[in-house]
């Protein structure tokens, strides 16, 4: 495993820690899109089916279980925890996320490497992950007040995929790997969706101002 990959995974993990910190200690999920969180549960459930069919490493298995467990836990808190669920910005979380699922299903059925259940679901999970942040970004645009933890959470989530791109470049050059268009293009699209957010996040950080996205 190269450094970019490890940093990417750690950034992803850290984003979840930051979100759990907000939910468990501040007891708030204000500004967090439940729709995006539900999409992540679907992404992990469909991607990690190979937990049952293939073993890679203790690290790999442990991380998959952590991502599955925490994503389900976060959705549970936002839907059912009696204090946390009252802080949910329901009226602003309006993105039609079913549309993203449908789009990813159609795309996975049309473009995949092999037509079998696990491969198509794996491909579906990549397409869905690429766009899963959209409801969250739309919610942020509508939020008048983006708190630090929410801003940091989204930034770390975007940084994770950007680091994965460097990891793919490294593996292509150093480990002599072949082209893998589906994950690469999905990953590029996913990272590109954050471009606008990155710009305003870094700007607010440099000017020591509160993060605010233009509507």
């Amino acid at each position: 495993m190269n450094l970019f990959r490890l940093l990417g995974d750690m950034t992803h993990l850290l984003s979840i820690v930051v979100l759990l910190l907000k939910i468990r200690t501040v007891k708030s999920c204000a500004g967090i899109s439940l729709k995006t969180q539900e999409l992540y549960v679907i992404v992990f459930l469909t991607r990690y089916l190979d937990l049952f069919t293939k073993y890679y490493s203790v690290y790999n298995t442990a991380m998959k279980l952590v991502f599955l467990g925490t994503s389900i836990g976060i959705v549970w808190y936002m839907r059912y925890h009696k204090v946390v669920k009252q802080t949910y910005s329901k009226d602003e979380d309006t993105f039609k996320h079913y549309f993203l699922i449908l789009l990813s299903i159609i795309l996975a059925l049309l473009i995949h490497r092999a037509f079998d259940v696990i491969e198509v679901l794996w491909t579906f999970s990549l397409y869905l992950e690429a766009v899963a942040i959209l409801p969250q970004l739309v919610l942020l645009q509508k939020s008048r007040n983006i708190d630090t933890l929410t801003g940091d959470y989204v930034f770390l989530l975007g940084a994770y995929r950007a680091l994965y791109i460097l990891n793919w470049v490294y593996r292509f050059l150093m480990e002599n790997h072949k082209f893998r268009w589906i994950p690469w293009i999905s990953g590029l699209v996913q990272t590109a969706l954050y471009a606008d957010f990155f710009y305003y996040y870094i700007k607010s950080w440099k000017n020591r101002e509160k993060l605010k996205l233009p509507a």
Binding site: D9, Y56, S57, N60, E175, H177, P183
Partner: peptide, 10 residues
């Protein structure tokens, strides 16, 4: 390299 290499990622 193994053909499934991308799948060793998360």
């Amino acid at each position: 390299p193994p053909s499934s290499y991308v799948k060793d990622e998360l």
